[in-house]
Design a binder for these strands. Structure first.
Ligand SMILES: [Mn+2]
Ligand SMILES: [Mn+2]
Ligand SMILES: [Zn+2]
Ligand SMILES: [Zn+2]
Lengths: 152, 152
DNA sequence: AATTCACTTTAGAATCATTCTAACCCAATT
DNA sequence: AATTGGGTTAGAATGATTCTAAAGTGAATT
């Protein structure tokens, strides 16, 4: 399996140019529309993020964008289906969309509804059981649930 | 930390007697009521299970029990709060309640909405990152997502 | 530049799991 | 048997997500 090519820091850090994002959409087989570009800018323009649909909606509104809730959901689902986003399921109430699609794991702080990335190489899953007959491993997820330390 | 004492196979396999279940509830600090006993019988009377609220509701109805949806939810949440059930979050749509409260992991077959237990010793998580300052590990969950093997 | 057409966006309704409310019910105690 | 403090319930409410069907837009074609 070939990993996503690493970007140079300068590319990864600065805001993506519009044509970079447009390329990203086209390459993923999605038409380049205003709504998708605007949301892609919010999602991919500032490093790895974990967002809920509603949080992204509020960001869009705060940024003065006129984008409906349905479009936010449509876009997140399309980006996910196209492999531009990963969906993370840690909370009963809502789902998170992760802009980091490389293999990695998560801390989850339930009290703060906050996800924190763990690089794949930070966790060593040394041994896994065989999959049941007729099934293949799609993905191995490690979720480390955290509590706030009690005040000493 | 002291683990739950293992039962002999004969005890674990056969249906629990009513007084065993009543003890289980009392010990957990829950009053022994008809509804709780009946649901405990369905949940704990047949080995380890992963159930959704709705599935349990249907089982109860099929068994001729007169139990409302609200009571199913109340009871599952109370059993969970009392430590008799674990809640497993793998699917965006609904949550699962797991009668196996020992440390263990899961396979999840999304296509079939089915959870399969993995004994803790079947997975070797050899190395974990340090928790962020001010937070402690509550639980480490490993979820192996499975796909059906393509037909050869 | 106008036309076309498939795809996109949208407001609002619908869905569905879960929770809440407030009235009745029952287990435990006296 | 009366009291009382949960427990149970029907039905309403909530909240995330999806659906509908109508209006808008991107890309290709005249
Ligand atoms: Mn897959
Ligand atoms: Mn805890
Ligand atoms: Zn992540
Ligand atoms: Zn389990």
């Amino acid at each position: 399996m070939i990993g996503t090519p690493r970007m140079r820091l300068s590319e990864k850090t600065k805001a993506h140019r519009a044509d970079e994002l447009a390329d990203k959409l086209s390459t993923a087989g999605l038409r380049v529309t205003q709504a998708r570009l605007a949301l892609a800018h919010l999602l991919f323009g500032q490093g790895d993020r974990h967002v809920t649909a509603d949080a992204l909606r509020e960001e869009a509104l705060a940024a003065g964008l006129k984008i409906s809730q349905a479009t936010v959901y449509n876009t997140l689902n399309q980006f996910h289906a196209a492999g531009l986003l990963r969906q993370v399921q840690v909370d009963q109430a809502r789902s998170y969309f992760d802009t980091n699609i490389d293999a990695h794991h998560h801390f989850y702080v339930e009290e703060e509804a906050r996800l924190i990335d763990i690089a794949a190489q930070e966790v060593d899953v040394a041994r896994l059981p065989d999959s049941p007959k007729g099934y293949d491993v799609d993905r191995v997820e490690v979720i480390i649930r955290l509590d706030k330390s009690p005040k000493a």
